[in-house]
Amino acid sequence: MSLTTTKRAGSLKTGVGPLHFANKGNSYKSALPLLPFFAFIAYFLVFPLTFIVRDAFLDNDGKFTFENFAECFKGVYGHSFFVSIQLSFISAAIGAVVGALIASAIVKTGSRFRKATAASASVLANTGGVPLAFMFLAGFGTEGLVTRALKFLGWNIYGGTFTLFSSAGIILVYSFFQIPLMVLIFSPALENVRPEWREASDSLGGTRLTYFRRVMVPLLFPAFISTALLLFANSFSAYATARAMTAGTLPLMPLLIGNLVDGNVIANQQHLGQAMAVCMIGVSIIVMSIYVLVLRFSKVKR
């Protein structure tokens, strides 16, 4: 309705944008079409979550107790917090940095290559579990192809303390899906960087370094950090790959929980597993709150 032509005119008219439906009657009526969604969420998400939190506070006789949580921080269970968080942090850092580097090289290629890599990245980001574990055994195991090739070139990766079943090995394996995930999520942010900005910076006398520091970093930092946190959560909760790789030798939180609840232990430990699961949610909430805060304080609107 304004004199100037506006794109997406439909939603700009005299306050009759998307909100005009919402004026219908009282506000709760407008939630009616969302009822199936809310019901689905309530039953399949909220319901299980309340149960697990409740059960984490029960002992074997169904009485309220903090004992499970006290147990969580003792011995191997307490140690697993440290191992899990450290491993996830390193894995996220490596995945984010390497992934960002690869993504920034990919955006400079032709559109066909970009499409192919995006499709491949979506496959690789979803690999995990046994297939991934065996691929790395075939490649980086003691008899693996890559191991032998590197040995031939004079670098024995097993010369030190490295094994595929240690933290370092797990981090290497996780990189196989962390890096593609970073590429997948970070690329759109990179594609929003317009060549004009580089030209503008150059024409104003900026060096490559000032462009990187003054334009790229402020622009991409929020996307970078938020994706890195996503990678953290991704490796923190990874279970299938860890289980396939370590066979229980590494004290990772998901593995311990899996052992606790998956049959062959005394019944008492069911509730300990639930308390551990609640603790994992707690760690995740802290990490994701950072994610939300970063998004909120990012100056660049998407």
Binding site: I52, S237, S284, I285, M288
Partner: peptide, 24 residues
């Protein structure tokens, strides 16, 4: 709804699985 849709990112699948096992 946006907030709800982020919740599964916060809940590790293994925690979720435990909840489902006891709740359903």
């Amino acid at each position: 709804v946006e907030f709800i849709c982020l919740v599964p990112l916060v809940v590790p699948v293994i925690s979720f699985a435990l909840g489902v096992g006891t709740a359903f």
